[in-house]
Amino acid sequence: MEFKFKEPHKETRCIMAKVAAGENPYLTDTNNSFEKNCQKKIKKLTNHKYSKITNSGNNSIFIALSSIKGSIIIPDQGGWHGFKQIAKFLNKEIITLKTDLGLINTDYLENIDIPKDSALIYTSFAAYTAEQDTASISKFCKDNEITTIEDASAGIGDNEKKLGNGNLSDIIIASTGSPKIINVENGGFISTNNPEVFENTKIPQKLSKVDEITCSGIDKELDFVKNNLKETINATTTLKKHINTTFHTFKRGVNVIIPHEKPKDIMWKLKKELPINHHNFITKCPNYNRLKEKGIVIEVKNLNYESLKKENLDKIIEVINNQL
Rank of each mutant, 00 (worst) to 15 (best):
I68K: 15
S66L: 08
F89D: 14
S60H: 14
F62A: 11
F62H: 14
Q77F: 01
S71H: 08
Q85K: 07
P75I: 08
I72Y: 14
F83H: 11
G70W: 02
G70C: 07
I104Y: 00
L97N: 04
G102S: 07
K98A: 07
N105W: 06
I104M: 00
H81S: 15
S71D: 15
K84C: 04
I104Q: 07
Y108V: 07
D76L: 00
I104T: 06
S67W: 10
D76Q: 10
K69E: 15
S71L: 01
G102N: 10
L97F: 00
K69A: 11
T99Q: 03
K84H: 07
G70I: 03
L109Q: 01
K84Q: 13
F62I: 09
G102P: 11
A87L: 03
K88D: 10
F62T: 13
S71E: 13
L90M: 04
I86Y: 01
S66D: 07
A64D: 03
S67H: 01
A87C: 02
I61R: 11
G82F: 09
I73P: 15
K92T: 03
T96H: 01
E93V: 00
K84M: 08
L109I: 02
T96R: 05
N91P: 13
T96I: 06
P75K: 10
T96N: 03
L109Y: 00
T106D: 04
L103Y: 07
I94K: 14
L101N: 13
K69L: 09
T99P: 06
E93S: 14
L97K: 04
G79R: 03
T99I: 12
I61Q: 03
K98D: 10
F83Q: 02
F62V: 02
A64L: 06
T96P: 05
Y108D: 15
G102Y: 11
A87F: 08
P75R: 06
W80D: 14
I74C: 09
T96E: 10
S60A: 15
N105Y: 05
I63K: 06
F89Y: 12
I95D: 13
